[in-house]
């Protein structure tokens, strides 16, 4: 029996790696990967808590299903926008895209 804290440590670690990826990476796709890591950390948390409460509440697993599908939709929109950006700027480096008032 793995205690719930271990899952929380794991999720916290993955979430932190995701945040670090978002903040340190300059390539838009890498930033998106960081965000996906953060979402997966949330999924681990939700399932760990559902297990901790002895599966008496199934809202956590249901939430996970919704997060997975919405993350897929978000990634699809993101990739479409990145392609459009690449066609316009010939680059998807978030630092290089500075057209608006600076």
């Amino acid at each position: 029996m793995i205690p719930v804290q271990d899952f929380l440590y794991l999720a916290g670690l993955i979430f932190s790696i995701g945040v670090f990826g978002v903040l340190s990476r300059r390539n838009a796709i890498s930033v998106l990967m960081g965000i996906e890591l953060m979402l997966n950390a949330v999924n681990i948390n939700l399932l760990a808590f559902a297990k901790f409460w002895g599966w008496t509440t199934l809202n956590g697993p249901v939430f996970v299903v919704f997060i997975i599908t919405i993350a897929a939709g978000e990634a699809a929109v993101a990739l479409a926008i990145f392609i459009s950006i690449y066609r316009k700027f010939k680059d998807i480096n978030v630092d290089e895209i500075k057209y608006l008032n600076h």
């Binding site: 930033v31 965000i35 926008i81 950006i85």
Partner: peptide
């Protein structure tokens, strides 16, 4: 395009938080 990308990256980040 730039607005869309900035909104998306920061919006998705904030949703995850």
């Amino acid at each position: 395009n730039e607005a869309g990308m900035k909104y998306l990256l920061l919006g998705a980040f904030s949703s995850a938080v």
